[in-house]
Nucleic acid binder design. Structure first.
Length: 792
RNA sequence: GCCCGAGUGGCGGAAUUGGUAUACGCGUUCGACUUAAAAUCGAAUGGGAAACCAUAUGGGUUCAAGUCCCAUCUCGGGCACCA
């Protein structure tokens, strides 16, 4: 007996796809292109999890959907391979990150192939491949040339566990995003990218993006533009003037004291001698305080500097204080306190008994110069770690940085025996003594002559986010040896039409926009936004609603689901059916069975009905006659004529599935297919029904659908619906009395828009007459809703 | 604390511009097939005997409210001393 055996069917088709590589993408001028990608995965040793499957399947459904509509589709794949997990694994086991990464990629690739994704496997990239990171270093050098990559000594977040600095975006609630350890502040000289240069453009262009509002809001908050003014306050005893930033320069009459951040750069020059010890102690305490302590305890603390400034508006002498409620990195690190207007200043004034003066407002521009500030800081990119892209810089004997010439790229990661950071703030790269030395050409400014000079390499590596800030462009020409991205290829394929992910709302998605704008300014990219549409999907949780985690032992392994006999098609279709794409969902093993039953029904429908002759939709003249026979259609009776009912439900389903996929309502698209199959079981399926079913099913369950189409001898071109088949000859009209449903009238379609006719039939109905005996005050007829409401 | 978003059967979730609430799936029950079970197929399934009552709670607008307005409660997310 011919049964649905998913593992057999899937093996057959995967073998075919592997041999034929049907999803190779090539530029076809004149054919509309569609480029889709997921946020590429970090290939962990644990292999694919169900979250990856959701992520990849969303991309796959859209890829196949557009491919079946004969657009020129590109769907590449890649791996984000630098980072701490591989390095920590190396420290623990001694296995080099390069080797472990290669093993993990091989496993990921194998697993992805078992899910039947329509990937162009010739466009596979890996950020730790020297062929790739050579160009990451090239990107760094472009930024360096324009002064957008620079070094600065400042207080930075330091993770004592991972022995590295972190970007602001990588500190979550005062803890390291990787290991969860509380971060500390450490003063270090570090590399930065000047993302703040693009703050305005990054902010202003958010609104036009076809991205989820949630992400757009998060990015806006992160950039955090405030419009205000800088105002200079002269000090009374010869110390340098203090510039404050305020959004309310109009409240200056109420400024009764100044407050400086503990890290305020010129603090030492301001403090009076008798207060020096107290201020030094306060500063030391403030730096020791962790971010968590600072957040949890918002009780105001502070100390008087012993110095005074002059309020330029009132000419009054006002005291200067130091307090950690003023942040060093924002504005100028100094504020004018207006306790009458500002809640925090008031709290501080009350605690330390400082004057609170009610204020009248003055003209905003009277005492200051307009100034815009941002919460966003420059992007700190140095990492004191081994397993990352080496920063292509060397230092001369005076410690001045020099870029590594482009023809010396890539700066390879040296092999070392011990991957541990050395506790001195330098990465394990510092242990590769030979590698550290490098000859760099230097041009003498006086003579114009170039000579080689021995220098010492930078031992920091780049933040992994730098590697993922340009990978979408590499997909356009993944093996190009001349360009990071080929100008012709990029012009054809990009920007990315649809990008799918579940993380990195501010970090990655902000960085990639920044690089895009920079490289557009440099003439390397013909667009300023890298991603047209973003789909940000929810997580899949364990059946109990909790996050899946190895330690809790509640992880569902997708390969187990497949190997249990359900197959990849069931897994994929289930994950699309599980709920709205943007919401988190809980795994339900029983619902997986429900989806399997559905696919099984599709298969059985085919084996029962596949032999039948194809039948197009009946012509209008035949419809009336066939409508009769469809009424009496036996269950899957093979001798009944193809009915107009089939035609109506077929076209209705085509329309529903097509529009749902366009709107990314994958769950209701699958539901519509289930309804269609249920209906076909009742009225009988024609070959045409089966072909349409297989075509619509293919994005979700490509193996089964391919099998069906092969047996039905049909291609997979996406079907179109015709509105004329969606109009029934009979229409149901709802009759309400006082808004309550009282009767449904089956009326010929031609009469359904005729108000008089509908009323006549309604009043003739005995179910209605019960309520209308006392007369009808008002009758509202809504043809659009096929509804008549009688008010009695 | 501030700013968003969401509360619908036993469960996951459907419902165009306000217009038949509960699509689809799970679960449950019954039936067919079978020595039996599984699988498959069919039927029923918000509550209530009924009138009726039900979309977190209480009001409001409307011929008509899950959908709009006001208040309250709960949950989720984001921001969190950003001057």
């Amino acid at each position: 007996m011919d049964r649905y055996e998913p593992l057999k069917i899937e093996a057959k088709w995967q073998e075919k796809w592997e041999a034929e590589q049907p999803y190779r993408a090539t530029e076809k001028p004149g054919v509309p292109k569609m480029m889709l990608a997921e946020m590429f995965p970090y290939p962990s040793g644990a292999g694919l999890h169900v979250g990856h499957v959701r992520n990849f399947t969303i991309v796959d459904v859209l890829t196949r959907f557009y491919e079946q509509q004969r657009m020129n589709v590109m769907r590449p794949f890649g791996y984000d391979t630098f980072g701490l997990p591989a390095e920590n694994y190396a420290i623990k086991t001694g296995v080099s990150p390069k080797v472990a990464t290669a093993t993990n990629i091989a496993n990921f690739r194998k697993q992805a192939k078992r899910l039947g994704f329509a990937i162009d496997w010739s466009r596979e990239i890996n950020t730790s491949d020297p062929e790739y990171y050579k160009w990451t270093q090239w990107c760094f050098l472009q930024l360096y040339k324009k002064g957008l990559a620079y070094q600065k000594e400042s207080y930075q977040w330091w993770c004592p566990e991972d022995q590295t600095v972190l970007a602001n975006e990588q500190v979550e609630n005062g803890k390291c995003w990787r290991c969860g350890r509380e971060v500390e502040k450490k003063k270090m000289k570090q590399w930065f990218f000047r993302i703040t240069e693009y703050a305005d453009e990054l902010l202003d262009e958010i609104d036009a993006l076809d991205w989820p509002e949630k992400i757009k809001t998060m990015q806006k908050n992160w950039i955090g533009r405030s419009v205000g003014a800088e105002i200079d306050f002269e000090t009374t005893d010869g110390a340098p003037k203090i510039t404050v930033f305020t959004t309310r320069p109009d409240t200056i009459l109420g400024a009764t004291f100044l407050v400086l951040a503990p890290e305020y750069p010129g603090l030492d020059y301001i403090v009076s001698d008798d207060c020096r010890d107290a201020v030094a102690k306060y500063k030391a305490d403030a730096l020791k305080k962790s971010e968590i302590e600072r957040q949890e305890n918002k009780e105001k603390t502070g100390v008087f500097t012993g110095a005074y400034a002059v309020n330029p508006a009132t000419k009054e002498k006002i005291p200067i204080w130091v307090a950690d409620y003023v942040l060093a990195g924002y504005g100028t690190g100094a504020i004018m306190a207006v306790p009458a207007m500002d809640e925090r200043d008031r709290e501080f004034a009350e605690k330390f008994d400082l004057p609170i003066v009610e204020t009248e407002l003055v003209d905003r521009d009277l005492y200051g110069t307009p100034k815009v500030t941002y919460k966003m800081r420059d992007w700190l990119i140095s990492r004191q770690r081994y397993w990352g892209c080496p920063i292509p810089i060397a230092y001369d004997k005076d410690g001045n940085p020099h870029p590594i010439p482009e023809d010396q790229l890539p700066v390879m990661i040296p092999e070392v025996d011990d991957y541990r950071p050395d506790n001195s703030g330098r990465s394990a790269l510092a242990k590769a003594k030979d590698w550290l030395k490098v000859e760099i050409p230097v041009t003498d400014p006086k003579t114009g002559k170039t000579h080689m000079e021995e220098m010492t390499r930078e031992t920091d590596t780049l933040d992994g986010y730098a590697c993922s800030s340009w990978y979408l462009w590499r997909y356009a020409s993944p093996h190009d040896t001349e360009y990071a991205w080929n100008p012709e290829a990029i012009k054809y394929w990009e920007p990315v039409d649809v990008y799918v992910g579940a993380d990195h709302a501010v970090a990655h998605l902000l960085y990639i926009r920044f690089w895009c704008k920079f490289f557009a300014d440099e003439g390397f990219l013909p667009f300023r936004e890298p991603i047209k549409k973003l789909i940000y999907h929810g997580y899949i949780n364990a059946p109990d609603g909790k996050k899946m985690s190895k330690s809790k032992g509640n992880v569902i392994d997708p390969l187990d689901v497949i190997n249990d006999g359900y197959g990849a098609d069931t897994l994929r279709t289930y994950e699309m059916f599980i709920g709205p794409v943007e919401l988190d969902a809980a795994w339900d093993p029983r619902s997986v069975g429900g989806v399997y039953r559905f696919l099984n029904r599709c298969y059985n429908l085919m084996t029962d009905k596949g032999k039948e002759s194809a039948a197009a939709c009946p012509s209008d003249t035949l419809r009336a006659a066939q409508a009769k026979s469809s009424r009496s259609a036996e269950h899957r009776a093979t001798d009944s004529l193809p009915s107009s009912e089939n035609c109506a439900i077929r076209h209705k389903t085509i329309k529903k599935v097509t529009t749902d996929i366009h709107k990314c309502n994958f769950n209701t698209a699958v539901a519509a297919l289930m309804e269609y199959v249920n209906e076909l079981y009742k009225v009988g399926a024609t070959a045409e029904d089966l072909v349409v079913l297989a075509k619509l099913l293919k994005p979700f369950a490509p193996h089964l659908a391919s099998e069906m189409l092969e047996r039905l001898e049909a291609d997979d071109e996406w079907p179109k619906w015709d509105e004329k088949y969606l109009v029934d000859e009979n229409v149901e009209i709802v009759v309400q009395v006082n808004g309550k449903l009282r009767a449904k009238l089956n009326i010929a379609a031609d009469d359904a828009t005729n108000e008089d006719k509908v009323k006549e039939l309604a009043f003739a109905d005995e179910r209605i007459q019960k309520y209308t005996a006392g007369g009808v005050k008002k009758a509202i007829f809504v043809p659009r809703a096929k509804l008549l409401n009688l008010v009695v």
